[in-house]
Design a protein around this nucleic acid. Structure first.
Lengths: 221, 221
DNA sequence: ATGTTATATGAGTAATTGCTCGCATTGACT
DNA sequence: AGTCAATGCGAGCAATTACTCATATAACAT
């Protein structure tokens, strides 16, 4: 990049006619396209404008700077995900632990299948977007829900440190599913991966405290 | 960045006198320093040279381009890790599954504590270094070892698809530990996290096949 | 001393790119 | 038809930065 002049930015003009709303949509679509097809390295504002078929000036009429474009993209993506999540939460409220976990894992899989490539680029390639406040906020919201779900079923759960358990569970599910998108697409589609992860999590949450040392009890039946 | 002229590069001059070997060391040290303290965004060849106290010309005498610097850093880092890994593998050959897993997890924790910040920046911020061939090769080597360890103890392991199990286990351990570096440093240091993860993995590998539906068996003892 | 090679220097070049700004066009409403 | 605001345009500025090259100095060999 050349001149990173603006770090934050003024609220730029808001589209009021249909024409400009269409322009904004086109720009976002082009931005996603460039990101997915060419990667973050090729993600320049000029290229996005060109791909969108609008002038660079128009782009800056609605997005104060490059980062704003990325943020808009990410917000849209997270919102799509969160919608399907909310829907699931309602269905899951009263389920027993195992089915809850299965549902949640399948939910995570579904999220990753929305726009897998965009998701991957946004979370892996785009720099300094990982530290975004609202993204952390989203994580905290998820973790709070998970914790609440655990507390409701506290008697079934053998783990002593709930906070730590929430951490382990959320990171595990996210990482395994995320990696599977590119490395095990078939298992992801077939549900084999979701089943495996569910087993992993349920086993962890409900297993007897580990035998402190020596021979393993579980294997010995 | 401005002119990404060279994509690959000639083998550059190799240091032959002590003086130049010292220069190369200083440059690498400065490179790590800049990466850790200022992040990848501020990682410019001119800045590295300045921090090292050598001229930009000298830097390019030994590193054909910017990426070569990063690759050298990464190789050094991975080598440090792999050294301690090899040492562990020998000790672990004959251990029972549970102790093996505990050892491996603790090993992973140790790896992440070598140069945690450098490790984080290299794996999270540096773009297009995640796709590097030799890094994939390293992953495959690790996975092969894990698979071999599983096969040796096949009778204790209840999972049917070994490949899938290797995938799930390796990604889980790596991700949980990696995230813990910045988010749960205390649990990482105390060993609480390693214990938890070990329990997670051993439980997964040795638990009875999941009850197809309905009440969970594990909780019911 | 003298020549040769390895090493160090840093001002400068060329490419890249985020972003501005003056002007043109469109559309809405008289 | 005329006015004004919303929208669109794109040449070009200014900052940034990977990398070169002509030149200088140090180490070594004879």
């Amino acid at each position: 990049m050349a001149p990173r002049r603006k770090l934050a930015a003024n609220p730029r003009k808001h589209p009021e006619q249909d024409r400009s709303r269409a322009t904004v949509g086109t720009i976002l679509q082009a931005a996603a396209h460039v990101l997915v097809k060419r990667g973050y390295e090729a993600f320049t504002t000029n290229r996005v404008a060109e791909k969108a078929g609008v002038s660079i000036g128009s782009l800056y009429q609605y997005f104060p700077n490059k980062d704003a474009l990325l943020v808009a993209l990410m917000k849209r993506h997270v919102m799509e995900i969160e919608n399907t999540v909310v829907e699931m939460v309602d269905r899951a409220a009263t389920l027993p632990l195992q089915e809850l976990v299965q549902l949640a894992v399948e939910q995570n899989v579904k999220s990753h299948l929305i726009e897998p490539e965009l998701h991957r680029v946004l979370s892996e390639e785009v720099p300094s977007l990982g530290n975004l406040d609202w993204k952390k906020a989203y994580s905290r919201r998820v973790e709070a829900r998970v914790r609440a779900a655990f507390e409701t079923r506290r008697s079934e759960i053998t783990v002593s440190d709930l906070d730590l358990a929430v951490f382990v569970v959320t990171r595990t599910v996210e990482a395994v599913v995320h990696n599977a998108v590119s490395e095990r697409p078939h298992d992801l589609q077939s549900g084999a991966l979701a089943a495996e992860v569910s087993r992993l999590i349920v086993g962890y949450l409900t297993s007897k405290p580990v035998p402190r040392k020596g021979v393993l009890r579980a294997a010995a039946e």
